[in-house]
């Protein structure tokens, strides 16, 4: 039991450990200019410094608030909207082309529009995250609802279930796997969008901070910021994947 655990840990981490070793080695022995790539220890030192003086936390919490609000509103809007659109096939037929158009328009290309509409403050950042996070859960929910086995709906209807009951007890649980996948995609997108938006037009936040660190040649801090962002992404994915596995065990087993 312990042995297999250990072995699994080894399998899962060896590539990452080697990567950091290679990084550190390249920087330390001058294979790459330390100005471009500082050593791992330098980055860790910078990490400690910005955590210690509260700089990182300030930028991190602000970025999380922006992503979190945009993401949550997007999910809360996307799921019911997706259920309704998936249910009314006719409406979906009309709206799908528009949806595809929006989805395939680069999200960041829309950022200037959001700045025009909402100014340079917090709202424009949350709004662009909302916009970027909306599509994956919406499209997945629609696909999920359309894919619900009609015999399940018929079975529930034959027992005289109400429309609301049908949505809550049949449609929603049946397409939960698709919805969760959509949410996971959206969370990833949310962070990416925010970082880019903060680089384009912000005076605080992780994206701004990384960009600004580069501007003032604080390369170690810049890498500390980058690592923070990848840690956020990994953490979100880990939590949502765990949740998904737990909630939709029945689906995984069916296939």
């Amino acid at each position: 039991m312990h042995i297999t655990r250990l072995k699994q840990f080894y399998t899962r981490s060896i590539a990452i450990i080697l990567f950091f070793l290679l990084w550190d080695f390249s920087a330390r022995f001058g294979l790459v200019d330390q100005f471009i790539l500082p050593t791992v220890t330098q980055v860790i030192e910078a990490f400690g410094r910005v955590i210690g003086n509260g700089t990182l936390w300030g930028h991190f919490s602000l970025s999380m608030r922006r992503t979190g609000s945009g993401f949550l509103v997007a999910v809360v809007v996307a799921i019911p909207l997706g259920i309704v659109m998936g249910w009314f096939a006719k409406a979906e037929e009309y709206l799908d082309p528009l949806l595809q158009l929006f989805r395939n328009t680069s999200i960041l290309a829309m950022f200037p529009v959001f700045i025009l509409a909402f100014g340079l403050g917090e709202l424009s950042k949350s709004a662009i995250v909302f916009w970027g996070c909306l599509w994956a859960p919406l499209i997945n929910t629609i696909a999920g609802v359309k894919g619900v086995d009609p015999i399940l709906i018929k079975s529930a209807r034959s027992m005289g279930i109400s429309v609301l009951g049908l949505f809550a007890k049949v449609i929603l649980p049946a397409c939960l796997p698709e919805i969760l996948t959509g949410i996971r995609l959206a969370a990833g997108t949310g962070v990416i969008i925010l970082v880019a938006a903060e680089m384009l037009g912000a005076s605080r936040g992780l994206g701004y901070w990384i960009f600004y660190a580069q501007q003032r040649y604080a390369t170690a801090e810049m890498y500390a910021g980058i690592v923070t962002i990848s840690l956020i992404g990994v953490a979100i994915n880990f939590i949502l994947a765990k949740l998904e596995k737990h909630i939709v065990a029945w689906k995984r087993q069916m296939q």
């Binding site: 015999i151 018929k154 027992m159 939709v248 029945w250 689906k251």
Partner: peptide, 26 residues
Amino acid sequence: PALDRGFVMQGYALFPWRTISKNVEF
């Protein structure tokens, strides 16, 4: 439809996310 009639369809139509007991309770 109403609960004075019970319908057993071809192909079981069980709710795959519900346990057996929860299916019967539907």
